[in-house]
Each structure stands twice: as structure tokens, then as C-alpha cells.
Design a protein around this nucleic acid. Structure first.
Lengths: 187, 187
DNA sequence: AGTAGAATAGACCAACCTGTCTATTTATTC
DNA sequence: GAATAAATAGACAGGTTGGTCTATTCTACT
């Protein structure tokens, strides 16, 4: 059960960071929520900053995993899989643990581009773009690099605006634009 | 010269908040940069939180003003004015005082939707959308509400991604998508 | 059953934070 | 030149933060 405490801290930290921000969430609140002693955190993660980085990496893994999962579950066709990803965006915004903009939050709170959290956020965005690139290529769409960049922009933008407006519309709008882009790239 | 000190504090605070974040910027650093006594700040703004709100409102005013200015300078045609706004996005990202995502940063650092900074950010996004709505309507484009929402999503998304990737591409991609959307809405 | 490693509670520290207070100096205005 | 207001420096308070340390208890394994 050595790693169970670790996972517990990671999970609670993620929820708190997401809901209240990184700087605003004190170490003590994480401990309290996780029901764990202070030294458990510091023995496992070394510092709050490293904990933040691990939370970001884990969140990225979870999100990317879910995206792939949903895509595969929706269809065998790459073209349709791309659209499926955008369709699930709106649902995920209403998910209680909606962490869509956690990476935007990270760059906002750690504006130094070379800081570990900013780098983790950048890495996530690269992964996101890569997924789209893979699907675009498989689907035989035109200018897949440019197109995947645009799709990543749409999904990032949608989750940002969603966080601002607390609405579902940005997801629908993004889907609509994605459909147009795909259609144009398909012949 | 009563208000000159005020403006000075406002300007320095804006630069620091933008570069280092809201929570990470202590009041003392603002004072030091502005060359101003502590009481000057507290007499003028009451609290750091209120200062933050004023900075956000001022930033919004500046940005919206610049957008309108650029649009008017570029053309008389509303259709072209919309595109002009997107063309200046890329330039503004390279501006040393690029504060594009300051509102995204605000919602990230003050996640409570009812908090004053989050409300200020929401208000900015509404203003942004409204500008597009006005131009879309004037240009006689189809479904102006939906279209303006999408344009606002594109411009917000672009500045978010730009902050993450430190690249110019998101602006170019956003412009490209905007061109497509406008074309489709114009007949 | 005994030993080693993990986890615990909680005191503790130094640094930093926002915000207050005061006594003094600087400008402005009449 | 006197009076009013604004700005100043700087000490101060009270609270919070991230992080360390210690002495104790729990848990697992052989």
C-alpha cells in the first residue's frame, strides 16, 4: 500500500488545484483533504512545485487517455473519430471534475516559460496536437499539420471560453467549426 | 497631478500582474516599481483585490480600444475590419506588453465564478463578442450571433495557445479560420 | 516475534503576505 | 504666507505560507 497514499495525495491535490488554483491552494489543505501527514507529502514529492508538476503530468495522461478512448469507442473511421472528440468536449465541461483549462491555469500562474509547470503545459498541448495530426493523416486529409494545429487551437480555445462563460456553447461552436474545416480538407 | 500617481500604480501593477501573475506579485513589488508609498496605493484603491479589478477593467478598455482603432484604420468595410482585427493579433503577441491572456489568467487565479476578477474577465469577453456582433451585423453576414461567438472563441483561443507556445502560428491559424467562416456567411 | 520502513501528529521556523498606523514632508490653492 | 490636502518612509501587526524536525506509532515481512 505504499503507493496508495501517494495516489491519494495526487488526486486530492489535482481536485483542489483545479477548483481553487495552484497558489491559492495551501499544502495544509491538501493534507487535510487527503487525510495524510505532512511528511508523507514531502517524502513522496519533495516540494509543492514538484507535486504540481506531477499533478499536471497525470492530468495530461488522463485527458489524453480519455480522448483516445472516446474516439475509438465512437467509430472506426478516423474522420469520425476527430468529430467524436469534439462532441465529447461539451459533456466534459459539465463533468464535475472538469479540468479542461488546468494547463492554461498553469501557464497563467507560472508565466515563466522555462518553469516546469509551463513546460508541462506545453508538452500537453503538443500531445493534443499530435493526436489530431495522427487522425488527420490517417483520414487522408489535406495539410494535416496545419489542420491539426487548428483543431488543437479550437479545443483549447473552447475550454478556455467555457471556463470563462460557464456555458456549453463554446463546445458546440468548436464542433461546428471543426466540421467545416474537416469538410474542406477532405477532397 | 493627483491622478498621475494613480495611473502610475495602475500601469506598474498591470505589467507585473501580466508578467508574474496576480498572487505571485506582492503589493510591495508594485510599490517599488511605481516608486510610490504604500498608503498611496491603499488610499487610491482600498485593497489589492480592488486594484486587480481596476487593472482588469483598464486592460479591457485598452484592448477593446485598440481593436476598434485598428479596425477603423484598416478599412471602411465591416467585413474587412473583422479580418483586420485578426491580422493584428499576431503583431500584438509580439508586443512586449502582450496582455492577451490576462483575463484567462484572472479566471485561472480566481476560479470562483462570482468573484470580482472572474466577473471582470467575463465582462471583457462579452465586450469582445459584442464588437464582432456589431461588425457582423453591419456586414450583413448570416447568423451574426453565432458567428460573432465563434470569432470571439477564435481570438481568445489564439491568445491562449500563443501564451502556451510562444509562437505566432496560432494567430495565423485563427485568421485563416476566420476567413473561412466569413466567406461562408457572406452569401 | 522481531525488525525495518512508512506513516503519523504536531511543534516549530523563517519568510512573506496584506493591511494599518503615525509622524513628517511635499504640493496646491487662496 | 497660511491652510488644506496628498504623498512620504517606515515601523508594525496578524496571519499564512512552504518546509523541517522529532519522537512515536503502525504495518509488513521473514
Amino acid at each position: 500500500m505504499a503507493s496508495s497514499k501517494r495516489e491519494q495525495v495526487l488526486k486530492c491535490a489535482r481536485e483542489l488545484f483545479e477548483r481553487e488554483g495552484f497558489h491559492a491552494t495551501g499544502v495544509d489543505r491538501i493534507l487535510e483533504k487527503a487525510g495524510v501527514a505532512k511528511m508523507t507529502l514531502y517524502n513522496n514529492f519533495g516540494s509543492k512545485d514538484q507535486l504540481i508538476v506531477e499533478v499536471l503530468n497525470q492530468s495530461s495522461e488522463i485527458m489524453i487517455g480519455r480522448m483516445k478512448e472516446h474516439a475509438l469507442a465512437a467509430s472506426n473511421d478516423s474522420y469520425e473519430q476527430i468529430l467524436a472528440i469534439f462532441r465529447t468536449l461539451g459533456d466534459s465541461y459539465q463533468d464535475p471534475d472538469f479540468c479542461g483549462c488546468m494547463f492554461q491555469a498553469a501557464v497563467a500562474e507560472f508565466p515563466d516559460h522555462d518553469s516546469a509547470p509551463a513546460q508541462a503545459a506545453l508538452a500537453h498541448h503538443r500531445r493534443l496536437t499530435e493526436i489530431f495530426l495522427e487522425l488527420c493523416t490517417k483520414a487522408g486529409l489535406k495539410s494535416p499539420e496545419e489542420l491539426s494545429r487548428k483543431l488543437a487551437l479550437l479545443s483549447s480555445g473552447a475550454s478556455c471560453v467555457a471556463r470563462q462563460t460557464k456555458a456549453r456553447t463554446p463546445a458546440d461552436d468548436a464542433l461546428c467549426i471543426a466540421e467545416i474545416l474537416l469538410e474542406r480538407a477532405s477532397n
